[in-house]
């Protein structure tokens, strides 16, 4: 459906913006390495099913793309951050990883290793942007491209919400876990969405309240 495709495309766009920004500026300035490490963890733990199940060619290619691009991003960020100190990238990610794992143990579609990892990845994804937002808030301003990247990334899960509503009516599908974490993820972004709207529409300076 249109929401799902638009969501996946905005996810792809966000990754291209990010990689392009790093390559053009030849710098990791303003980009949180921690957020990108969390995304790599999210993709690797969610897509372990690549090894033993097949849904569609689209699905498989996208999964391979997300895993490989997230690892590539980390490599590039490491390469370009040698000379700069990321003063502001000091969010304690263990405070995101540990609770996500506990929530994965409590809420899952079956007490199997793969299902626990899948649930863990959803919880972790919902809060993975926090180090990046924290960094943005501390530095007070940001390159427009970086904010475009965060916007596209946030839009992707926001678009999954109408996708789930559509699938509920069209297919009778209702994945409580995905919907709950998806709503949390969108709420985490909502303040950012508002600020982005203000900045882009009214062209005012960027700051996170």
């Amino acid at each position: 459906n249109i929401f799902r495709i638009a969501g996946d495309l905005s996810h792809l766009v966000s990754i291209f913006i990010l990689i392009n920004t790093i390559n053009v500026k030849k710098s990791a300035q303003g980009i949180s390495l921690k957020t990108n490490i969390l995304y790599a963890v999210v993709f690797v733990t969610r897509y372990v099913d690549l090894l033993y199940s097949y849904t569609s060619l689209y699905n498989t290619l996208m999964k391979i793309f997300f895993i490989s691009s997230s690892i590539y991003t980390i490599v590039m960020l490491k390469k370009y951050s040698k000379n700069i100190q990321q003063y502001n990238d000091d969010f304690k990610i263990e405070y995101l990883i540990a609770p996500s794992f506990v929530l994965g143990l409590i809420f899952n579609h079956g007490f199997k290793f793969s299902e626990i990892l899948w649930s863990f990845s959803l919880w972790l994804e919902s809060v993975s942007i926090l180090p990046q937002l924290f960094m943005l808030q501390k530095s007070g301003e940001s390159q427009l491209l970086t904010t475009h990247y965060i916007f596209a990334l946030g839009l992707y899960r926001a678009l999954y919400i109408p996708n789930w509503i559509y699938r509920y009516f069209a297919e009778g599908r209702f994945d409580k876990l995905a919907i709950t974490t998806g709503i949390i993820q969108t709420l985490v972004y909502s303040d950012f969405f508002y600020v982005y709207y203000q900045k882009v529409i009214k062209n005012i300076g960027f700051s996170l309240p």
Binding site: M62, K63, N163, G172, A178
Partner: peptide
């Protein structure tokens, strides 16, 4: 509702 969740989303 369908029983069993298929992880066909990204």
């Amino acid at each position: 509702l369908k029983g069993g969740i298929i992880h066909d989303e990204l």
